[in-house]
Write a protein that binds this DNA or RNA. Structure first.
Lengths: 90, 90
DNA sequence: ACAATATTTAGATGTTTGTCTAATTATCTC
DNA sequence: GAGATAATTAGACAAACATCTAAATATTGT
């Protein structure tokens, strides 16, 4: 369960996508333009991020608007700080 | 550079190792006993974690004692909380 | 120096993953 | 409804990865 999450964060392209979304929401196309890889590849990455619960999608006409799921990141940050700093709990 | 770090965290066995080390320092052998995989495989994981700067090693006679590099985790937690929560900076 | 114990490194193998192109689905406009 | 645009899904492929066994390195004790 946390597996999807960490696995999703492991790819640099996906982290870049998340950073872009942190600045502002974007459509799949706007995101894809930022990368030198194929449109379909970015779409695949977006699927992984969505599946991990890191981003949310909403249709907007013919576009798909992606936004960051900010709350999840605070959870992750908390988990890491707690679990791996001698804390007894996970 | 951050790549090694996130990639290291992506594997569940490695995260388990980190959790064990969070409780207390252990030798490679003590860690290996906790997993159903081959000794050499655990050693490989330890190498990855060390390479990522997540753990430190110290020889202790014929044993190798591993300990968590706690400060790094606070950095990661901070990075995640900041970068992916609308912050402008990385 | 030799045998035993602890750990890492090397080489091989099956699986997963990121990427691509091509095909498909969905929406909008005419 | 046909055509255009936006995005995802399918199928293929090469690179990366986790795992294994076997060999190598390091340390201790006799």
């Amino acid at each position: 369960m946390r597996d999807h999450l960490f696995r999703a964060l492991a790819d640099p392209t996906r982290r870049k996508i998340l950073e872009l979304l942190a600045a502002k929401d974007r459509t799949a196309g706007e995101l894809a333009e930022e990368f030198p890889i194929a449109f379909a590849s970015v779409s695949h990455h977006l699927g992984v991020l969505k599946n991990a619960g890191l981003v949310a999608v909403e249709r907007e006409g013919q576009h798909m608007r992606y936004r960051l799921n900010t709350t999840v990141f605070q959870d992750i940050a908390r988990y890491i700080a707690k679990t791996f700093s001698g804390g007894t709990d996970a």
